[in-house]
Amino acid sequence: MGADRWQRTRAAGLGKLRRGVHIGAMSDAMLMFDRHAVRLHRDRAVATVGQVSDVLREAAERLLDRLDDTTRRFTRALDVGGRGVVAPLLRARQLEVVSCDLSPAMAAGNGGPAVAADEEWLPFAPASFDLVVASLALHWVNDLPGALIQLRQALRPDGLLLASLPALGTLAELRQALTEAEAALTGGAAPRVSPFPELRDCAGLLQRAGFALPVADLEEIRLLYAEPFALMRDLRAAGETSALRLRDRRVPSRALFPLALSRLPTEADRVPVALRLAMMTGWAPGPDQPKPLRPGSARASLADALRPGPGRLD
């Protein structure tokens, strides 16, 4: 009901945009990410994403482990932004898979039916899938609640969403090193690493988007780099360079990255990098799911249960 209203206002908003009506500085300022840059980064990463597929696969496998925690069997899955890694894992589980990606070229690399689609404007009919997997795919989305609502609508009742997002603490060392190095060089610092959500916000997000039984838990993947530049190379290879709308578009001082990377903490000559991933599960509401009791429907009084009495410890 709320979701329907939301959809209508979104559609009306874009209709205006297409006719060239200026949407105003206020709404622009609320957009965190430059979606065109996200698209270009993913287009460019098609040739290189294979270099980081082991990390992407590790993250995807940990997310898909959640499928083993349920007795439900799934048949039709949507893979959102799986970068050629998620779809094969799902097919190995005998699922029929459709993949989508903001980049048409990246979508083509999933080895099955694929669609170029914007996560903020999904093109799927209601109840098209019984499983949606978005492994490290939603962290460059401006309207995350809106994307989650649309994913829920694409699910059948009692369908499952599995999504992972980098959480607070991911690339924290890099963020700090870049800020300190830039401050030392120029006296100021531009945002260069995305803000990541806290774990507790993630379950709240699912709930706001109308998912039942929302759960978010944390998985950490620790990477060790022999040399700090390899971290930057991997981020680029994955299409994960900064698409912050307020990023500093000037070419940074040549000294910035060498200085920042030299400041990264090391362990036995290696640079440790932690990816802290929020693993999110939520179900599209269905008639047979456990639900909380109606308030006031309890037949025993809590006050009675708590009253000190014989045989109770005070």
Partner: peptide, 14 residues
């Protein structure tokens, strides 16, 4: 792919 025709809608109007 004919399987896609069954599930695709317009992203703007649904």
């Amino acid at each position: 792919d004919p399987r896609l025709l069954e599930i695709l809608v317009c992203p703007l109007t649904k």
